[in-house]
């Protein structure tokens, strides 16, 4: 047996596919729409959420036996808010331009339903190690979707990846643009994020029929 038991591995892997917070539980959609116009902010947002949810789940799990039940939700909010402020400070100190670009969205991690959802549903009833795995797993599931959406939106919308012109130069008409290819400006706008997420959900459900609910 390795470092992780079978049950522990499931905690990490399930949210990546069959129990994905975005495509199956449809949580955390707001930030998925807002920051995925480019790949770089998507990745930073994913890393920030992994940090906040991984550590937050451990903190809540460690405190699960001493948190007064009357102010449970407030305590959870304080933990998220504290971690988010720490992320914000670190970004301001070491990635200033990125922090300006993400500005309000970092603060909005607080309202990301995935985080409070995992605190309430998992960390309050499980030990720190399992909570950590659950937190990282769910944040990864969220991050994977963010990065996939960011990849397609930046590639098709701006013809770049991480700001590099991978399809040629749209102004000078080189590369693909020389044979008449044009960027799809609509990809940069928020509605396209919804449509890309919708396509991912479609692909996922058609590959795994068990995910389709009966009506």
């Amino acid at each position: 047996m390795g470092l992780l038991s079978k049950k522990d591995t499931k905690l990490i892997l399930d949210p990546l596919s069959d129990d994905n917070p975005i495509t199956i539980q449809v949580l955390g959609i707001c930030s998925a729409l807002a920051i995925t116009a480019q790949l770089k902010p998507s990745i930073v947002m994913a890393v920030s959420v992994i940090f906040v949810l991984g550590i937050g789940n451990v903190v809540i799990s460690l405190m699960r036996n001493i948190i007064p039940s009357k102010i449970r939700i407030i305590v959870q909010l304080i933990v998220v808010a504290t971690l988010v402020i720490i992320v914000d400070l670190i970004l301001k100190a070491f990635a200033y331009e990125l922090s300006k670009e993400l500005s309000v969205f970092i603060g909005l991690i607080i309202t990301n339903c995935i985080i409070m959802g995992r605190f309430e549903a998992f960390a309050l009833g499980n030990g720190p190690w399992r909570s950590f795995l659950d937190g990282v797993g769910n944040a990864l599931g969220y991050g994977v979707i963010l990065i996939v959406v960011g990849f397609f939106r930046e590639l098709l919308g701006s013809g770049t990846l991480f700001g590099f012109k991978v399809l040629g130069d749209s102004v000078e008409k080189t590369g693909l643009y020389a044979i008449g290819y044009e960027n799809n400006g609509f990809m940069v706008l928020p509605p396209m994020a919804l449509i890309v997420v919708g396509i991912i959900i479609w692909v996922q459900r058609s590959r795994n029929k068990a995910l389709i609910e009966d009506h």
Partner: peptide, 25 residues
């Protein structure tokens, strides 16, 4: 954990810890 005194005490300690941590950082 349902007593009011415990709830208030917990809140005070938590605010103090979090405040110190953030100010320090």
């Amino acid at each position: 954990r349902d007593k009011n005194s415990y709830t208030i005490g917990f809140a005070v300690v938590m605010v103090f810890v979090v405040g110190t941590l953030l100010a320090g950082l």
